[in-house]
Design a protein around this nucleic acid. Sequence first.
DNA 1: CGAGAATTTCAGAAATTTCTGAATACTCAG
DNA 2: CTGAGTATTCAGAAATTTCTGAAATTCTCG
Lengths: 156, 156
Amino acid sequence: MPEADERRETAEQLALTLSEHGMQRMAARVLAAAIFAEQPTLTQGELTEELAVSTGAVSGAITMLTSVGLVERVPAAGSRRDHYRLRDDAWARLFSRQNEVVEAMLRMARHGVEITSEDGYARSRLEEMRDFYAFMVGEFPALIERWQQQRATKER
Amino acid sequence: MPEADERRETAEQLALTLSEHGMQRMAARVLAAAIFAEQPTLTQGELTEELAVSTGAVSGAITMLTSVGLVERVPAAGSRRDHYRLRDDAWARLFSRQNEVVEAMLRMARHGVEITSEDGYARSRLEEMRDFYAFMVGEFPALIERWQQQRATKER
DNA sequence: CGAGAATTTCAGAAATTTCTGAATACTCAG
DNA sequence: CTGAGTATTCAGAAATTTCTGAAATTCTCG
């Protein structure tokens, strides 16, 4: 199999997994393309060609990816086009977004506990939910910090 | 606001959050209803009525929730209907499913490293991705175990 | 400032997901 | 065994998401 095809296929597989877990389809494809690209940065035009989609679709996906900090715009002197690339800390960021979900779940559990009557079935389920997510909210930041330290250590 | 309405609304909010993160909409609504129900178990008929949807939709959602271990069928003597409830360890299970995602990401990163050329841009991005997910795969099981221990300690 | 190149926006088309409704298949009490 | 009450299945309808294409806008350079 031609190398380029294999790369594309693997990238599409990654995009599929990401989109199955809530990421918009085109955003996932653009992210995957940015990861697998053999260039340091990509322009929207290059992405449009690589993915064979409309410019509008790429533009929308990049707006989304930039806003959540997975992709960044790179100042490119002497070029009329914008260049983009995967952010250095993209994975930690993607993971941190989980943290927000966990916090949302915790808030909902707490709210649920407040509005349900004591000793009811719903109340005890919600207390369990609250305790679980409170635990996770407590653990996540330390987890990410450990990663960052390990990473910093490795790279000199 | 009538108590029941507030409960329903809060449940729907939870369902919305779950569905925004990849859970099928109806499955999310059924799960939320099971959490907020003031009964110990629910029948499909009760869910159908509570959510005002077709029997088919509830059946499909329950099949899905049962297969991933979030909801279980409860043997109900002397009843022709099946009774269901939230599993005791549902939250840890929901979280563990994340673990599978993390493992999938790790596999894809490794595959990507294999098929990209050494010293290329894609290769180094994929190595970073691989290291991150390898770290997470290493940490998750311990995280869940800590939760289970803490939980076991609290009760009793 | 003006032309050329690229990006953004957005209405509507296309694709996909999700739900309904009704037929079919179970299951358990009698 | 039988049949009344439930659950499952599935084709097609409905709803939602996603993408395209083209016009409007922005930006850069000469």
